[in-house]
């Protein structure tokens, strides 16, 4: 889990250097999901996401988490992991469950009717985030959602410059 794969990437373009700024492993109880959501919000704000974008992302992440609560583990509580990954140009929140789903749901293009279960949450995520990707985990069950917000102004020297330090060295050439 902690191999040093990202060190080599740091020498590339600024956008290719991904830094995981938060990893939360929790369960799918509503209270735990709320705590995870607030942690994500704080991490995104710390990483330099604007107030408005951060709020939109928070709602998107909250919807993804409540989808997990409602659908991923029918009649039970299961594991949920949330990660926040920052690059110089975008912030991605990766929400993962290990539920029974063997196919990733589709993001509806138009507003689903009020009675459709779960569909509205996905629609909201699609509207609130810049980019959403839903995939089945490599294990064959459970869904991983990658929710991305693009930064309007690329990051400067957050996290003490560790994230894009090498990129800055190569810039003056």
């Amino acid at each position: 889990m902690y191999e040093r794969s990202s060190r080599g990437m740091a020498a590339g373009t600024p956008g290719s250097c991904a830094v995981r700024i938060l990893a939360v492993h929790t369960d799918s109880r509503p209270e735990s999901l709320g705590i995870a959501r607030r942690q994500v919000r704080d991490a995104m704000t710390r990483a330099g996401l604007g107030d408005e974008t951060a709020r939109d992302m928070e709602v998107a992440v909250g919807e993804a988490l409540s989808n997990i609560y409602q659908h991923a583990y029918p009649g039970g509580i299961g594991a949920v992991s949330v990660e926040v990954i920052a690059t110089a140009t975008a912030i991605t929140v990766v929400v993962r469950d290990d539920g029974d789903a063997t196919a990733a749901p589709e993001i509806p293009r138009r507003l689903p009717p009020r009675t459709s279960p779960g569909g509205r949450g996905l629609y909201m995520i699609g509207r609130l985030a810049n980019d959403v990707e839903l995939r089945v985990n490599p294990a064959g069950h459970g869904v991983t959602a990658r929710i991305t917000a693009r930064l309007k102004t690329p990051l400067g020297t957050a996290w003490g410059g560790e994230g894009n330090g090498p990129a800055r060295k190569t810039a003056p050439q």
Binding site: Y2, M9, Q39, G163
Partner: peptide, 13 residues
């Protein structure tokens, strides 16, 4: 206070 764990590009937790 709540503690968070971060991992930098250098792999330091």
């Amino acid at each position: 206070p709540i503690y968070a764990f971060t991992r930098t590009a250098a792999g330091v937790v």
